[in-house]
Design a protein around this nucleic acid. Structure first.
Lengths: 166, 166
DNA sequence: CCGATGTCAGTGAGACTGAAATCT
DNA sequence: CAGATTTCAGTCCCACTGACATCG
């Protein structure tokens, strides 16, 4: 019946929201365990993909240049990342994970990621492909709405801290 | 082949991570548009489920009691939430969304949520049920690892701000 | 010289700890 | 009065704006 399908779609929506909250809580716990704030964690997350310049990191996390500098200072001081001057364009500074940083990330997120395969084991290949396509589509939708919001609200700061006009 | 299945599973993992980053970026943009910080947004997110006491809100967001108080002050001052003394236990303070708050959330997240059904339209009912079950299972796994981390690292503060012993 | 990239001061908002107030 | 819930006072970290240094 059509009504069953609607409730199914709604259930997927709620499940997505609940999953989002759970991962937020997990990241909180990781931050507490390592004494890292959310911005630090997000930077480390991006750096697992590839080394990035300070500017790219700032854009990815939404931080200002100065904030990015102090953030990289923090992570560097703890030995999680290191700065490497770009030999081609000596203005740029590449930030990359150190072996210590990579190992630490692995220790915390590894046990969680290791359960992924067993969780996905009951699905067929076609089901997995559908799931992947759904996630890719959802990512695309969210990104579209993000740029829509960005264009409709330009010139404001990130966290709304300095943006509060009294 | 087994190798195809492994790459499929890996692809689902990467797609999940990408989706996570996209929603993080979207929430950033919402915060910028409304001059609300991440904690404010998370509180509003929880309050869409049901009214909660200040203590529950603090536990849900991981904030201290005092931080929760000032957070609710902020949101109340802007007219998004309101305090209601619990008539049964007059120590407790229930926090609930105002009509204005509900409307504002709807205006920002509504357009995004409205695309969910069209994104899910190509899936069969059984596929949707599988997806829902996967998300519920993933939420459970993440929550289990969160409590594991919590138990192995107790007595530390949330954001690691005051936790940095020099 | 001008644009781009990154870093250095100074300011302000928000989260924390600890103590006080209110209610059961 | 002890316990629970929320709020107040004081401190500190972190992000921001704006100016400066360096490089293409």
């Amino acid at each position: 019946v059509a009504d069953d399908r609607q409730t199914l779609i709604a259930a997927v929506g709620r499940a997505t929201q609940a999953y989002q909250r759970a991962t937020d809580g997990f990241d909180d716990e990781v931050g507490r365990a390592l004494a890292l704030n959310p911005s630090d964690l997000r930077c480390l997350d991006w750096l697992t993909e590839r080394p990035m310049t300070a500017g790219e990191l700032g854009a990815a996390t939404g931080l200002s240049g100065a904030a990015t500098t102090t953030l990289v200072d923090r992570l560097e001081q703890r030995g999680y990342v290191r700065r490497v001057r770009d030999t081609a364009d000596r203005r740029k500074v590449l930030v990359e994970l150190t072996p210590d940083g990579t190992r630490m990330i692995g220790q915390l997120y590894g046990p969680l990621a290791a359960e992924g395969p067993s969780l996905l084991s009951r699905f067929t290949d076609t089901d997995l492909a559908l799931m992947r396509d759904f996630l890719v589509g959802a990512t695309d939708v969210v990104d579209r709405h993000r740029t829509r919001l960005r264009n409709s609200s330009e010139g404001r700061t990130r966290l709304g801290r300095a943006a509060i006009r009294t």
